[in-house]
Design a protein around this nucleic acid. Structure first.
Lengths: 212, 212
DNA sequence: CAGTCGCTGTCAATTCATTGACATAATTTT
DNA sequence: AAAATTATGTCAATGAATTGACAGCGACTG
């Protein structure tokens, strides 16, 4: 399929559409117009139509969009119709928090393994999943068809671990470590830099005060 | 001070500059040009100069930027020269993970209290901080000069808690709950929507496959 | 100490994103 | 069944962000 590249700006808005459509669906609402969605979501109706049209004409003139249908379609676009096998690297507090957050599983993101370099932690079970030593990671990824690795480790080891993951054929990395990973272009990296986020909040707090 | 509004796009890049400058500083490097930074950070030199110039002329022609000075200045811009008092609402896995992440404290973000609605959890200590019941929250915020509240609770209760926080004079909310909070404009909200981030990664994995 | 070079700050050009406008088509009303 | 209404898909216009270009200042060199 020769499709035009969708900008990350647009992609970043899809999950939010998906969430609101899910809520409408749960409320039993069957149809919605871009104008109604616009009111609920606080974005322009024009942007909604523009965004959706990147992926095809999901609506119908004079009617609007069918909530259930659009919800499913966006789900497919986001790749939620298939299952993803994940591992978590780092069984610290953050790693554990992620494993215990069951909403990911509900969306098809299945935690298949947890790895940690601390021998004390290895062997323990977190939500039924045994923590394994790092040296078993590469084989595990290959044998269990893992496509996403979650890096919940300090930045000091993140670069090295990322390299190992690249070598054993990982497709995507969800990176919670506070470094920028340099990986081949074929591998997708999604960063969650919590301290950056907190600093942004801090900036906005300060700048608001200055205005007064 | 009558200063022009800085776009969130630019603000969002500041923490990254801050991080790289910190690393250079730790390596003992004293000066850096926008071109050198450009090579390290993989952004255009033009963008770096443009971004920094929003806040003033930190560099010197023919010399470049003094690493230590620029680091400190960006720190101040981000509001890191002062301390922030935070509370965490929700003592679940995520809340605990955040409390235990000591890097925030090092930057002046001090966790002063933890709150949870579960009576079983109240009274327990996490890294020396006692978990308190929700009904004590409002008074605590006011008495302890809390400016930031971290919402690490399910979306079902997030909206209600946010309203309480607004009432007792919170200035900023770091929101990990999967809802959009509607708060007065004077209150800053920074969202960390983990599932949105994961869906974005999922999209990029799928779209990459389609290309092949 | 004069000349060369390096690098910023800034303006202009370009690219990208958002908003507005409307022709057209399906739906609902009468 | 015709008329009126609704709301999409898309094109054009506007606005924002990024990149490119360079004048001019300061630093370094011989």
């Amino acid at each position: 399929m020769e499709e035009k590249e969708i900008s990350q700006t647009v992609v970043g808005r899809l999950p939010r559409y998906f969430r609101y459509l899910g809520e409408l669906k749960d409320e039993g609402i069957e149809r919605v117009s871009s104008q109604e969605l616009s009111d609920i979501m606080q974005v322009t109706a024009s942007q909604i139509r523009q965004d959706l049209n990147n992926f095809g004409g999901f609506g119908q003139q004079g009617y609007g969009y069918n909530v259930g249908f659009l919800y499913d379609e966006i789900g497919k676009i986001l790749g939620l119709h298939r299952e993803h096998n994940l591992i978590i690297v780092g069984a610290g507090h953050l790693g554990q928090a992620l494993v215990n957050y069951t909403n990911f599983e509900r969306r098809g993101f299945l935690f298949r393994g947890i790895f940690d370099k601390d021998p004390q932690v290895c062997g323990q079970k977190i939500r039924g999943i045994t923590v394994r030593p790092m040296n078993e990671m590469e084989a595990f990824v290959q044998e269990n068809d893992i496509d996403i690795a979650v890096l919940a480790i300090p930045k000091t080891s993140a670069v090295e671990v990322a390299e190992q993951l690249v070598c054993c054929g990982i497709k995507g990395i969800w990176n919670f470590a506070h470094v920028d990973l340099r990986v081949p272009e074929r591998i997708q990296v999604e960063n969650v830099h919590l301290s950056d986020s907190l600093m942004k909040l801090s900036y906005n707090l300060s700048s608001r005060e200055d205005e007064e």
